[in-house]
């Protein structure tokens, strides 16, 4: 997973980064966002989400901006946005290659 922070991201990791694009979020909001966004196809278990948040924070992709009781709110950093865009570009190329292969 460590190498994937700068390379290919797993699906849950990509959606967690995606969740921060429009607004700052806390963990519980992210679970709801991902479930809603994917129509329930991608589910984030609490262990998975907690680990991804901790890892992203460690890698500087997100940063904690507020603590309200048991809630911690994070926001995307420039590095996080850059990583998201890189991953999106990679996936677009994959998709294009896949579609071309069908022709």
């Amino acid at each position: 997973m460590k190498s994937k922070a700068r390379g290919p991201l797993t699906e849950p990791m990509l959606y967690v980064l995606m969740a921060f694009l429009k607004q700052d979020m806390c963990g519980i909001d992210i679970t709801e966002y991902v479930s809603r966004r994917t129509g329930g196809r991608v589910q984030l278990g609490p262990g998975t989400l907690y680990t991804i948040l901790a890892k992203f924070q460690e890698d500087g992709l997100i940063e904690e901006i507020a603590v309200d009781g048991r809630k911690r709110t994070y926001r995307l950093t420039d590095k996080g946005k850059e990583t998201y865009m890189d991953e999106l570009g990679r996936l677009q190329m994959c998709l294009r290659d896949g579609e071309e292969a069908l022709l």
Binding site: M1, K2, V42, L44, G45, P46, T48
Partner: peptide, 12 residues
């Protein structure tokens, strides 16, 4: 399920 992503479980 606590872990829905095998990579995150493996990382932990």
């Amino acid at each position: 399920k606590a872990y829905t992503d095998p990579d995150s479980l493996d990382y932990v």
